[in-house]
Amino acid sequence: MTSQAASRPNAGGGLAQALRDGYILMWRNLKRIPRIPELAIFAVLQSIMFVLLFAFVFGGAIPIAGGNYREYLMPGIFAQTIIFASATVSVGMAADMSQGIIDRFRSLPMARSAVLTGRTMAEVVYQGGILIVLMLSGLAVGWGVHTGIVEFLAGVALLLLFAFAMAWVGVWLGLSVPTVEVAQQVGFTVLFPITFISNVFVPVQTLPDFLRPVAEWNPTSTLTAATRLLWGNPTAADPRLPAATGFPAEQPILLTLIWVVVILAIFVPLAVRKYRSVSR
């Protein structure tokens, strides 16, 4: 406390500091994954349960052109898992806000954005890990990638980009709810319809007319359709059903990228504003 020289924190600030501080908070968020392994284990188990349920229980009843329902299902499961990531982020964020550690962060000469960017970047890394486990289980039930390495990586990149966008939704939600329990409830109430009114489990043509446009434009559907297209998994429904037409069916990759931009453009400013206003 007497040594003056050592007490001068590095000058700096700006983008470099924001990135450095964001990285440290990402490290912090990733560190806790092996410390609470149950979280990751159940996240993976939940997705595997969906694979098994739909592949073996409903699979026979759902008509798919080109045959293999599991090939059709897996990209949808990946997308569903990614969308659900926003729920875990919101719970984590709400938990942080309910504890004193946020006060410590706010009293430090660190980039204000780091708490949020650290959380969302960690989520992308975490979802990447979960994706690897899911892909291995997909291979085990007969799913595969039938295109090249470039298309494979493009599909993975699209999924992770989407995970990043959804993480910001989760951050905003986590900052907006009063308690961790509410974050959990809201997450699942909103996310189940989003992932079910989509092409994840069934072709959209099987849906009633009033739901079909919702399902077609649903980001879960466009993300699923985009990865199916990139990896050569079946995209079409049974030929006996009317063919899917329109922009979502024709440009799923472009539409997914548009969704990513739109979600980020809305939720990054909302989350940042919410964080700034917390207990001020």
Partner: peptide, 29 residues
């Protein structure tokens, strides 16, 4: 400044050493 509150504001899932290192880094050491 340094602030120490009535609710221990440290990360439960990190070790003591990791907590201090993290706060040091965020203090821009």
């Amino acid at each position: 400044i340094g602030l120490s509150g009535q609710y221990a504001a440290v990360d439960e899932n990190l070790t003591g050493r990791e907590n201090l290192w993290m706060f040091g880094r965020l203090y821009q050491l």
